[in-house]
């Protein structure tokens, strides 16, 4: 394990590593490093971010992403890389950094652990000593959804996942079970935000607002997962409206909403969102606005800023599951 990458403006106070570490030595290393130049810095009290990845996970990439959050760093980042094999292994790397924010200097820690053997079945015992007192613990699962019975969830206040890489549409049943245990943010849902936002905003226009009371048909397109989430969302928010989710699966996500003699279409492409409105036989009104693809750091920042229940996502997910598995 090499030295941790740091973002612009961040100053590393010190690093420590040990390929045969114990949790005691990791905690001592954190204390020792913090006692160097770190005492003049303000210890932030935002949250502990725990990142869980598999053997293929590049820990440096994780820290790159987290440090890419700039001034909105979690107070402590713990990256767990779970290795195959039954032999016990606990390798650790610790970094302590300073980050200027306004007229203050904030202190930030990161810990990277490589684990294998029995300890991977008892991650809570590794994580608990590293959580900061009284602060939320946010777990970001970069690959698979965790098992809803995983003991790790006992120490988790908020779970961040990406359904697009964790099973796609097939994984939403498990995700629905997870969100009943713990608050969940799904990057796949956040990626659809530009589309949802434009549709919602255009329907706030006073002249279009009545369309919502007369919706007769909705069509959604996009990949399997996007279609499931969008259809679940519409079905949950506009109960009883007929939804056609068998549209173009190769196109980007879109929603076409017809009501009265008005048809509103919002399409999300790779780098833009296009909204068009056709009223009767009249000409189409169209607006296209640049919306660069969301970066992982951008999605993570959005997730960390909204650590609260999201009943709209919960409703969309539950409805998506019900539509996919009517039984």
């Amino acid at each position: 394990m090499g030295g941790p990458p740091v973002s612009a403006g961040m100053v590393t106070v010190g690093t420590w590593r040990d390929d045969t570490a114990s949790m005691g030595s990791v905690l001592k290393a954190l204390d020792d490093l913090r006692c160097r130049d770190h005492r003049g810095a303000v210890r932030t009290s935002f949250l502990t971010l725990l990142v869980v990845g598999d053997a293929a996970t590049e820990v440096d990439e994780v820290f790159d992403t987290v440090h890419g959050l700039g001034q909105n760093q979690p107070s402590r980042v713990v990256a767990l890389r779970l290795l195959p094999g039954t032999g016990h292994r606990l390798a650790a790397r610790v970094g302590v950094h300073l980050l200027p924010r306004g007229d203050q200097c904030l202190g930030i820690d990161d810990v990277a652990l490589e684990l294998s053997g029995d300890v991977t079945s008892h991650l809570d015992s590794v994580v608990e000593p590293l959580t900061l007192p009284d602060l939320p613990v946010v777990v970001w699962c970069r690959k698979d959804h965790p098992d809803p019975e995983d003991a790790l969830l006992l120490t988790t206040d908020h779970l961040i996942v990406d359904s697009a890489v964790a099973g796609g549409r097939a994984g939403i049943v498990q995700l629905d079970r997870l969100r009943r245990r713990v608050q969940v943010t799904d990057f796949a849902w956040l990626r659809l935000l530009p589309l949802r936002r434009h549709l919602a905003m255009v329907l706030r226009r006073p002249e279009l607002r009545p369309v919502l009371d007369q919706v007769s048909a909705v069509t959604v397109t996009g990949g399997d997962l996007d279609r499931a989430l969008l259809a679940g969302w519409i079905a949950d928010r506009l109960p009883g409206v007929p939804i056609d989710d068998e549209g173009d699966r190769t196109a980007g996500p879109s929603v076409v909403l017809a009501g009265g003699d008005v048809e509103v279409t919002v399409e999300q492409a790779a780098a833009s969102v296009t909204t068009s409105v056709v009223e009767g036989e009249g000409p189409a009104w169209e607006s296209s606005i640049g919306a660069p693809p969301a970066t992982t750091a951008g999605l993570l920042a959005s997730a960390l800023l909204q650590l609260r229940p999201d009943p709209v996502f919960d409703g969309a997910l539950a409805m998506a599951v019900r539509r996919s598995h009517p039984g």
Binding site: R196, R197, A200, M201, R204, L212, R237, V312
Partner: peptide, 12 residues
């Protein structure tokens, strides 16, 4: 109130 609608909720 007049312009709140179900699709607007949950946008943060």
């Amino acid at each position: 109130d007049a312009l709140a609608h179900p699709l607007f909720e949950g946008l943060g």
